[in-house]
Design a protein around this nucleic acid. Structure first.
Lengths: 247, 247
DNA sequence: ACGCTCCAGGTTGTCTGACAACTAGCGGCA
DNA sequence: TGCCGCTAGTTGTCAGACAACCTGGAGCGT
């Protein structure tokens, strides 16, 4: 499955694993490019391309004439720049992910959903509402919308803890990336009831639009997270490099 | 100054400019690698390395045998993955950034600051507190801490709207990246007073640790943003690629 | 007229080899 | 002892070649 990726992507993935597993610790110097390439029986150019990817991700930094070094960065929990699902999010805390109060139906698209999915307002779209639980405790109230001709309400329901992403993937709609907007908020009456908290409880809301590599928006989601359930982190690059602000 | 960067970084920067300025629109196909390289009188491998960087950043996507295409992604406002200062943040909304209630002093490091800066608890550190305004309206309450032997309280004050980053840079401490944690919150009495809002007002708090490329933590900051002042967005990669969850 | 196959050109992916630019440490020399 | 310069090692760039793959059109058969 991962062999379908190009060679440099596989090599990059292997290097990420070495760093993530601790075999390469922060500050360590990587073996030289020719050495890394020879070990794996690939050309230096492919190895070099893989290292370039990791450099861009901020995992390593190169010093001309000296070597390539693993950068110091803490192990991130719930890195916002990665598009994981809520299940993985819960699982990463060591708790058991579950689903409650799942409903799936055809609804008239709310304005912001219609706009994001690029369909006329009021178009019928598939909606999936779920309350996600961690060890049985409700922690996230999620709503997903997608075009009815992409996934029907029936296909959306019964996923269990399965990801909507994989369901879309089976229809040839591979989610390439998403754009998320983060806002704080207080629980309204309905959300409070669904999450079993007091009305006005503190929430972190993530509105997200997922799209394919062709730029087709295929999934809109709104997640209300209990404030004390998770801590979201993100690595912010610059201003050392690429600090320019255009326009 | 940008010529000190390696060639592929310059080429990548030029390509980013082409995309950002709209000369290359989403969905457009880039000229072929040999063509791009020939136009700029560089080798294909350097051009290719630059494109690899943009691919990793998500600006373009390559299709084997077909070409390289500009990905469709909205212009992001306040992209969290970029480490801009609060001044740039305010300026990007078209409002005039300002500073109020600036105080700078030597304080005993709070536990989480001491831990982040890797100094013993209670060590004296420089603290800079500022209320940032947009067209005169208070919108962000920020506090910065750094080691006293890096920047004294006197050096921290009087920056005007200048960035703490540039002050650190003049001491050879170039901030390479930061790690931010995002949490929702309600204004306590003091923050409410400083921001001139009701106690309990909705806030988005960003705790951040900035470090050099060597991994030395040089700056800790805590920003309380008024909930309705800004919308923070972030591009989330995957699960199309690199969706694996390790451990 | 329509649909299918096959082919040729174009593009990205990978390989090989070479040299330039730069770093860091070691040893000789004053 | 302290400085200089050299050398081995590493990353940066170049050049050329071929493989793998996609796309559109020509040509053919129905």
């Amino acid at each position: 499955m991962s062999s379908s990726q190009s060679l440099r992507h596989q090599l990059a993935q292997e290097l990420r694993g070495l760093i993530h597993s601790g075999k390469l610790a922060p500050g360590d110097k990587l073996p030289s490019e020719p050495e890394l390439a020879h070990e794996r029986a690939v050309s230096r150019s492919s190895m070099r391309a893989a290292i370039t990817m990791l450099e861009e991700e901020g995992f390593v930094s190169r010093r001309h004439g000296s070597g390539t070094y693993v950068t110091h960065r803490p192990a991130l929990r719930n890195d916002l720049s990665r598009n994981f699902g809520v299940s993985s999010l819960i699982a990463s805390t060591g708790l058991e992910p579950g689903t409650a109060a799942e409903t799936s139906e055809l609804v008239s698209a709310p304005p912001f959903v219609a706009h994001a999915l690029e369909v006329p307002e009021g178009t019928a779209v598939s909606e999936l509402r779920r309350v996600r639980t961690a060890d049985g405790r409700p922690v996230v109230d999620t709503t997903d919308w997608c075009r009815a001709d992409h996934l029907s309400p029936e296909e959306l329901s019964g996923l269990g803890v399965g990801s909507v992403y994989s369901a879309l993937g089976e229809h040839g709609l591979v989610v390439h990336h998403g754009v998320a907007t983060i806002t704080p908020g207080n629980a309204d009456a309905e959300t409070a009831r669904r999450l079993d908290v007091a009305r006005g409880a503190l929430l972190l809301t993530i509105d997200q639009v997922d799209m394919t590599s062709e730029g087709v928006s295929v999934l809109v989601s709104r997640e209300h997270h209990l404030a004390d359930a998770f801590a979201f982190t993100v690595v912010r690059h610059g201003p050392g490099v690429a600090a320019e602000v255009h326009r």
